[in-house]
Measured scan of single mutants.
Amino acid sequence: TLFEALYDYEARTEDDLSFHKGEKFQILNSSEGDWWEVRSLTTGETGYIPSPYLA
């Protein structure tokens, strides 16, 4: 399933992933509550992002 970022986000820890509004992601793991592990389709990087920032 693909999701798109609604807002920009700046990583706060080394496990987080910074991203920009409009960036698209593949969800790798959504079992961690509000923090999902994703792969950016723009950069190929993986990390955790806050799920409320996605649509």
Rank of each mutant, 00 (worst) to 15 (best):
A11H: 04
T46F: 06
I49F: 01
S51Q: 04
Y53R: 05
T13R: 14
A55S: 13
I49W: 02
Y9W: 07
Y7I: 07
E10C: 13
S31Y: 08
W36G: 00
Y9D: 03
K21G: 02
H20L: 10
G22C: 05
S31G: 10
T46G: 01
T13C: 15
K21C: 06
E37H: 14
Y53W: 09
P50D: 01
D16W: 12
R12Q: 13
P52L: 14
D34V: 09
S30E: 07
S51R: 10
L41I: 08
P52Y: 15
R39N: 01
S31P: 07
W35A: 03
T42Q: 09
E32L: 13
L41G: 02
S18T: 10
E37P: 00
L41P: 02
H20R: 14
D16H: 15
L6C: 12
E10L: 10
T13A: 11
S18A: 06
D15H: 14
R12N: 08
W35L: 08
G33S: 10
E10M: 10
L41H: 04
L2Q: 06
I27H: 01
T13I: 05
E10V: 13
P50F: 15
P50Y: 15
L41V: 08
I27F: 08
E10D: 14
F19M: 09
Y48Q: 05
G22E: 01
F19N: 00
T13M: 09
H20M: 10
W36K: 00
I27P: 01
G47E: 03
T1A: 12
L41E: 05
E14P: 12
L2D: 04
E23A: 04
T42R: 14
G33L: 08
P50G: 03
S40M: 04
W35N: 10
S18I: 08
F19H: 03
N29P: 01
V38R: 00
F19W: 02
F3I: 04
E32S: 13
Y7L: 07
T42I: 08
H20C: 12
T42A: 12
E14F: 11
L2C: 11
L17D: 00
A5H: 04
S40V: 05
P52E: 15
G22I: 01
N29T: 06
E45D: 07
S51V: 08
L17E: 01
Q26M: 12
Y53S: 08
E23L: 02
I49E: 00
R12A: 10
E14I: 09
L28E: 01
Y48K: 12
D34I: 11
E32I: 11
E14D: 11
E14G: 12
A5W: 05
A5G: 01
G22K: 01
F3K: 01
T42C: 08
D34N: 07
R12P: 10
E23N: 15
A55Q: 12
Y9C: 07
I27D: 00
T42H: 08
E32R: 14
Y7S: 06
Q26P: 00
P52W: 15
W36E: 01
I27Y: 04
L17C: 06
F25E: 00
E14K: 11
A55C: 13
S18Q: 03
N29Y: 05
I49N: 01
D15Y: 15
Q26C: 09
G33Q: 09
T13D: 08
Y9I: 03
W36Y: 03
Y7T: 05
S40F: 03
P50N: 08
